[in-house]
Amino acid sequence: MKQACYTIESNLPLAPGVYRMCLVGDTSAITAGGQFVDVAIGGFFLRRPIAVQKWDSRSMHIVYKVVGKGTEVMSRMTPGQSLDVLTGLGNGFDAGACKASALIVSGGLGASPVFSLAKSLVEAGRKVEVIMGFNSAADVILADEFKALGASVDVVTMDGSCGLKGLVTDAMPSDGYDYFYTCGPKVMMKAVCAKASAPGEASLEERMGCGCGICYGCTCHTASGPKRVCADGPVFKKEEIIW
């Protein structure tokens, strides 16, 4: 965990209401895909927790959706502005848990936190299949970037305007993977965990206070007792999660 000042290099729309911001600064505290950062926005008391899509030694990309006034202000920020950000928050995905073939299932913005996971898995020589669900073709994000990593990508839309029509669970294979990872709406992840034929993990979301484990504002029930989504998670093993 680290607090630092970052400079916005770009802040561009990826889809209606969805933006990707590139922040230049110290990324040394980020160690795993699925971790998040907590962004301070002038005029708002609490920070905004946002997943890291990808990072290197110089910069990181975060993808966010405008869901309220804070993210609306973020969407209007311009290159050159600086931001106070806590980085390296949360546990992230356990890329090492997959031994040969991984299934990644994302829903909507959930495509962002699993991106660096997919990259790590491909780099480690794992076979990676990604099923990405969206409402419609206009909402599809990052699909081409996943393909460029070398992953096999299936896009599913609710209205059938891109790829298979239906739910991500309709596109899930019955076998062929030894571990799965999922991130998206809670109902989707619950269905994915129920259908999956292998062990795996899911990234939970909760309204947060501090984002770094001190306020206990985002506690969830798990099989091994109360856990803080921000600090003990956000990624939990399937068998730990109490839906």
């Binding site: 708002f44 309204r207 206070g209 306020c215 504002g217 506690t219 969830c220």
Partner: peptide
């Protein structure tokens, strides 16, 4: 365990918490 989530609500210059003594 405390209260169920959501336990946090942002407010002008502050926040509401309802952690409930977890």
């Amino acid at each position: 365990f405390g209260n169920e989530c959501p336990r946090i609500a942002e407010c002008p210059e502050g926040l509401i918490n309802s952690v409930g003594l977890q």
